[in-house]
Simulated assay, not measured.
Amino acid sequence: MAGEKVKQLSALFDTPQHAQQFIELAKRAGPCRDLKIRCKAALLDEKGKQILSPKTKMPVIGWADWRPEAIRAA
């Protein structure tokens, strides 16, 4: 468990509801740590601004903690 990178669990668990169910099952099955729902999103700096790639001038995409309040219905 030491030093592992964040990885996508599976295409089967690609929704927050399924990921939460998996986390609950994993916790019941035995000891585990650092189970949290994350999503790919534009990374932000300390001030809340998007981090831009110096080469492409596009936002840097990386893993961010999933927050249900950040998701808005269209």
Results as ranks from 00 to 15, higher is better:
71 I>P: 00
40 K>G: 05
74 A>W: 06
1 M>C: 04
73 A>N: 02
52 L>F: 01
28 R>F: 07
60 V>Q: 00
61 I>M: 15
19 A>W: 00
53 S>R: 00
2 A>I: 07
59 P>N: 04
53 S>N: 15
70 A>I: 02
22 F>L: 10
74 A>R: 14
73 A>Y: 03
31 P>S: 10
70 A>D: 14
30 G>Q: 04
29 A>R: 12
36 K>Y: 09
73 A>Q: 10
34 D>Q: 08
33 R>K: 13
6 V>E: 04
33 R>P: 03
24 E>A: 13
67 R>Y: 12
35 L>P: 00
45 D>G: 02
6 V>T: 13
60 V>T: 03
48 G>T: 09
27 K>H: 12
70 A>W: 09
42 A>K: 14
48 G>Q: 03
33 R>D: 09
50 Q>W: 07
27 K>C: 13
37 I>K: 05
16 P>R: 05
7 K>M: 15
30 G>M: 06
73 A>M: 12
12 L>Q: 11
46 E>V: 04
19 A>E: 03
2 A>F: 07
7 K>I: 14
41 A>D: 15
33 R>Q: 11
15 T>V: 05
31 P>R: 13
73 A>I: 04
44 L>P: 00
44 L>Y: 04
15 T>M: 02
22 F>H: 10
23 I>G: 03
59 P>V: 00
53 S>E: 02
29 A>H: 10
69 E>F: 13
33 R>V: 10
5 K>E: 09
9 L>K: 12
46 E>K: 14
74 A>K: 12
2 A>S: 10
73 A>C: 09
46 E>R: 07
25 L>M: 14
13 F>T: 08
4 E>P: 00
66 W>V: 07
62 G>W: 02
14 D>Y: 06
67 R>D: 15
30 G>I: 04
60 V>A: 01
62 G>L: 02
42 A>V: 11
5 K>M: 08
18 H>N: 11
36 K>M: 13
61 I>K: 05
58 M>L: 10
8 Q>S: 14
